[in-house]
Design a protein around this nucleic acid. Sequence first.
RNA 1: GGGGGAAUGUCCCGAGCGGCAAAGGGGGCGGACUGUAAAUCCGCUGGCUACGCCUUCGCAGGUUCGAGUCCUGCUUCCCCCA
Length: 422
Amino acid sequence: MSPAPTFTSAFLQTLQARGYVHQISHPEELDQAAAAGVVSAYIGFDATASSLHVGNLVSVMLLRRLQQAGGKPIVLMGGGTTKVGDPSGKDATRQLLTADQIDANIDSIKQVFGKFLTFGDGPTDAVMVNNDAWLSRFGYIEFLRDYGVHFTVNRMLTFDSVKTRLEREQPLTFIEFNYMLMQAVDFLELSRRHGCALQMGGSDQWGNIINGVDLIRRVDQRPAFAVTTPLITTASGAKMGKTAAGAVWLNADRLSPYDYWQFWRNTEDADVGKFLRLFTDLPLDEIAVLEALEGAGINEAKKVLANEATALLHGRDEAERAAEAARRAFEDGAVSGDLPSIDIPAAALAAGVPLAVLAVDAGLAPSRSEARRLAQGGGLRVNDKQEPDAQRLITAADIGEGGMIKLAAGKKKIVLVKIVGP
RNA sequence: GGGGGAAUGUCCCGAGCGGCAAAGGGGGCGGACUGUAAAUCCGCUGGCUACGCCUUCGCAGGUUCGAGUCCUGCUUCCCCCA
């Protein structure tokens, strides 16, 4: 996909070598700029959910690479653009969020960036801005006169985000149609306010980004560049980070460090090298060694991946705890307090609780019927013993080592039941 | 404006003589095999106070012992004519 030119700047060399590059708008010019001084670049993040997920992680890592290479990262929170909704890659209009929801989401999302970037006032310190600051201030006619004149509908209709909607004869509302203008104006504003010369993003953002590049070059005659990352898929073709349990969230309150670690640990063999390059800071030569491991040996590489990726997000301590909990659970068959757990009152246990109820409470099955089927299929274990009868009452007699009851659905999902209270 | 078609299991695609909890895929989950991988094979894939009960086929009515299936109206989408 990429022309694979040789770059002189550390930044682009790294991006190229680690697999972040899908498209670059003016490669030579950007390379020179990056080699010559501090490049300031931004990535925009929607505020459609209360947490980012692994799908956003490539972008976050991209900003990290920028900072590591001596650039200045700008995190743009899409407080304003989220009010409009990006039609890219969606075949239906999405529900509009209220301003309050958006603000709450931004608050919740913010914290994650501190783990990956250094914020501050220095020349290469990261900054965070919210495009609501300028977008919500425009008057309609003012906006049209200042920016609308630079966009032709003829050209807007050629963008994929618009074209696919029209081709599928799905409605594209006027508000969505405006999204690309707003994103272009964002880039222009950041160029003026922060000297931002580069916008990065996923490959689906290429059209949106190029609009901004063109706008800046036309209106201000200033340099502007675009870099997009490839869509990260697993080797078997699935979009990364979608599991039945839901998205792989970055916020700890939506996905525990243990589960996050497990997500990486369960990477397919064929993806280990790619993920190590994208999602860890390990040097490329170390990755090459890990990637070359064969057979069961590659499990070691997966553990390194899980450790490093989890350490970046949740800290080294949490990563080690997750790794240790996993090691004991999967390699020793023992339990440790760091496994996911639920509490049950001793009184309830004395009366006996049907296994199906417990399994649902533990999140191992979505319904009692499902728990029943799971048990019948041999997928439900109590203290490592298959239990085909989900009706069976779990009582104090089932308390195992550590004074807890170990429930498992399948080989990978383990939940400890801790007994509390009278 | 006129004519013709479509909407199915709350993940998707899709079959469905008036007896239907509804064929078949995909996906997902579980089992076996492995290495917490992939591939392969097998099972499961509406809920519940469970030999029964309840809720499901765009929406609202109707015919019928009985409706996803027939009738009427409505909504949305597609195709053809103007």
